[in-house]
Design a protein around this nucleic acid. Sequence first.
DNA 1: TTAGAAATTGAAATACATTTTCAAAAACTA
DNA 2: TAGTTTTTGAAAATGTATTTCAATTTCTAA
Lengths: 145, 145
Amino acid sequence: MSDSLLKDFKKFIKNKGLKYTPEREEILKEILEVGDHFDVEAIYLRLKERKSKISKASIYRTIPLLIEGGYIQEVYKQEGHSHYEVTINKQPHLHFICVKCKKVEEVGDERFLHLIKEYEKERNYKLLSYHLEIFGLCLNCQREI
Amino acid sequence: MSDSLLKDFKKFIKNKGLKYTPEREEILKEILEVGDHFDVEAIYLRLKERKSKISKASIYRTIPLLIEGGYIQEVYKQEGHSHYEVTINKQPHLHFICVKCKKVEEVGDERFLHLIKEYEKERNYKLLSYHLEIFGLCLNCQREI
DNA sequence: TTAGAAATTGAAATACATTTTCAAAAACTA
DNA sequence: TAGTTTTTGAAAATGTATTTCAATTTCTAA
């Protein structure tokens, strides 16, 4: 987990006139350690496991900052709550979500990347984030029906 | 609003061993009349306006059926609740969502349509629905900053 | 056509993710 | 390092969505 990332985050927080707290740093660290998809509950439990006293409220309060700073992104809602993913060092990609077994496959694809860039150019959109979700039945679940 | 659509819906409901009620029909009719993006509150208020006694609970209960039947699709969550759109007679398309003014532009695109079909073929996925959301700043909102 | 079984309804209660409140604690700034 | 401002945890509040339940409706099959 790169130190410069935490420095950047500190800079980002200070630039906004906010205070750099151990809680904010710890939450970002934990999320980076997961590195992949996560939800608030998972981060809360991981922190608790390592004896951290950080509250859920703080996690909820930190997430919008991390999104704004480009560290994470909300990717989908499932079972009534939001799921996020780390966007640092990630190429644009899409999610195949099997509606039956709930498996999420993350797939990077040059064509998708290219298309996204085209759209940005053509429409003069200042692109911040995007996601392509494809819901369906994976091969396994098609067989089982 | 095509009558055959309602007949299909009736068939769909009966096939599932469920009962075809005036409430279910009225909800579908109202949604088809809106024809575009909507949320539960909007449908509830429209029904109320025309003196219908249909409860929100019934709307919430009908929506999963309409999704399963392919009449509507959930497209995004905003301001804490789900937004849907009618999928009947619609080509696949993507949404440009301006994070500042909240405007949603719906854009059909051949390249996107083609890409989606490629994915389905390549990955042996039985595709049910999908959506591409692009969050950013529209031209207007870029200027205003 | 109608009796009876099964599903559906509205209203209220409930569940649950997320946000807000508030007083105490911590971070910062001059 | 004193004073201002922000942040924190805990609890309360909010708001969407789901469930419960008794009354009603749909529908089947006799």
